[in-house]
Design a protein around this nucleic acid. Structure first.
Lengths: 202, 202
DNA sequence: CCTCAGGTATACTGATCTGTGAACCTCATC
DNA sequence: GATGAGGTTCACAGATCAGTATACCTGAGG
């Protein structure tokens, strides 16, 4: 991608995320990135393709941050909840929720590439949770992964409002991992039905 | 509100939710509701006011469904997770996520009335969870309510994709309520650290 | 019978939207 | 020194946007 192309994507990223995709015109993006509209169309062909490039770049950037957090975790159990640490720093500069969910809200056509990107992002995180849970020795990693994904997306979605739900979500995520990672000896299970309930059973 | 006004709000609700607020013009809403654009502006004054009316009506409709589900619950514990039952039926006809989160994605101005409506909706649900948890005798109802809200919003947010996370979210919600509603006798707590961890401690 | 609220019909403004056309510039590489 | 990629300038098309103006219709209540 040419230097002008990178500047265009950077400007589109900021404007699309903060003001909405439909509400931002290509003229504004061109002006914001110090580039002619002609250059924008020479590089991307259409606004839809620019939207796709914006979402793709954002996805790659976020994934690399998550990967770094996972690699920096001290223990396998902490690695499972590392994406919640990424979300904590990510939220400091991205305070308007999930860009992919927001994009789907504006793009009703399921055949738009944005749908694939958004779906793949969630599936990637779900699969990452599952693999990390399996590595950490958690029982029923698939069920645990689904629960962690819901918690993650819930924390992102409620971030709009000033409720500060992320710490609580991350706490619960760690509890779920602990309960799933260290199954109690069999003889203690009947005396503690809730533990076996919290630890996924399917 | 006049008959024409009701038809306009109904048409706006369907179009705004399914195609996006910015992407839908007032001409389309007028045509869709079988009404003149003049009538639309006589009733609502501006598109922004129509957006506010749309969100307000949707909020009221959803709240009454939640209240009905809570009232229909058999036990206080089941009442706490009744909103998840509402979400199950609600999602059958509303498959494009939370209309308020979607609206915030398109309306970047925090001074827009939509912000207040969306924030109040989430706060209302959070408070409902808290009151129901207290009624059911749950310990630390505030913490439990936050966790339930995150689960609820996470289930709504991931509904876009075909992941079917709602059953798992509702299951986990019920487990959390159970763990918080029936605290174990003190002498058993040391032998079961995970239970005390799942039951909110703050 | 009169009035008036609710609504219709149609035309219009001025701005903004995505996207294109055509000519020109600049600079590195062959 | 010719070529071509990346970029600029500017004008323009055609559509759509929110919102307004003017005149008219209709039916219920005083």
């Amino acid at each position: 991608m040419t230097p002008a192309g990178r500047r265009i994507v950077a400007a589109a990223a900021e404007l699309f995320y903060n003001r909405g995709i439909t509400a931002v015109g290509v003229d504004l993006i061109a002006e914001y990135s110090g580039v002619t509209k002609r250059t924008l169309y020479n590089q991307f062909g259409s606004k839809d393709h620019l939207v796709t490039a914006y979402l793709t770049e954002r996805d790659q950037r976020w994934r690399s941050l998550v990967r770094a957090a996972v690699d920096a975790a001290d223990t396998p159990a902490e690695a499972v909840t590392a994406p919640f640490e990424t979300l904590r720093t990510w939220s400091e500069t991205n305070t308007r929720g999930c860009a992919f969910i927001n994009a789907l809200a504006e793009l009703p056509d399921p055949s738009h590439p944005a749908y694939r990107i958004a779906a793949n992002q969630k599936l990637w995180l779900l699969n990452l949770f599952k693999e990390l849970a399996a590595t950490a020795g958690c029982s029923h990693p698939a069920t645990l992964a689904t629960r962690l994904l819901v918690l993650h997306e819930g924390a992102v979605a409620t971030q709009h409002l000033s409720l500060d739900t992320l710490p609580e979500s991350a706490d619960l995520a760690r509890v779920l991992v602990q309960a799933s990672a260290s199954p109690r000896p069999k003889e203690r299970q009947p005396s503690c039905p809730d533990c076996s309930a919290v630890a996924p059973t399917s």
